[in-house]
Amino acid sequence: MEKFTTHTGVGVPLRRSNVDTDQIIPAVYLKRITRTGFEDALFAAWRGDESFILNQPEYKAGSVLVAGPDFGTGSSREHAVWALKDYGFKVVLASRFADIFRGNSGKQGLVTGIVSQENIELLWKLLEAEPGKEITVSLEDRTVTCGELTVPFEIDDYVRWRLMEGLDDIGLTLRDEAAITEFEGTRDAWRPKTLPAKTLPKEEIVAARPVD
């Protein structure tokens, strides 16, 4: 993962609350087996609308999304993070994020900064008054700067450290492999295992057919 310290890019005001991951990327785009190439799927349903913010030329190159509360609710699909990243977003700012989305973002190097709703409103006004205006996000200082305005954002200390160091989670956990093995040795024997597989007797499943 790339290290993240500071980013400056075009801010995109998305005046919507409860942007769920079905809006960020509809399910029909989840059938790919790659981890990249999802940029066309981002906000797919809204991209068809000419007035949608990312269809306005000034915002097209956006890399800092400023969204309403409860961003990323619903489905756990990490594709939502991949789509935002593939489009070019490095940061999402909102007053509240859904937990799974925020966790997924942290794993993928997308910064999710929690900014108070009052400050989100200020950022929206600045970005709408001057479309294409740039925002600077400093992970080091935990600040967002837009013109004369500088506001703080919150992010978990550990996630911030990992993003700034660009560290891979699995590698970190595997340093504790001995502790995992030791823990496994303490488990009760009756705890279920999927193997060897046990099932009720096999039965034939009849395929349903289309009705006319």
Binding site: E78, I100, G103, T173, I180
Partner: peptide, 20 residues
């Protein structure tokens, strides 16, 4: 609880998750 794909990979590799 539900997890994202990076965490799926994490559990496959380590049978654990780092969680707050």
């Amino acid at each position: 609880f539900g997890i994202g794909t990076s965490e799926v990979e994490h559990v496959l590799a380590t049978q654990t998750l780092p969680l707050k």
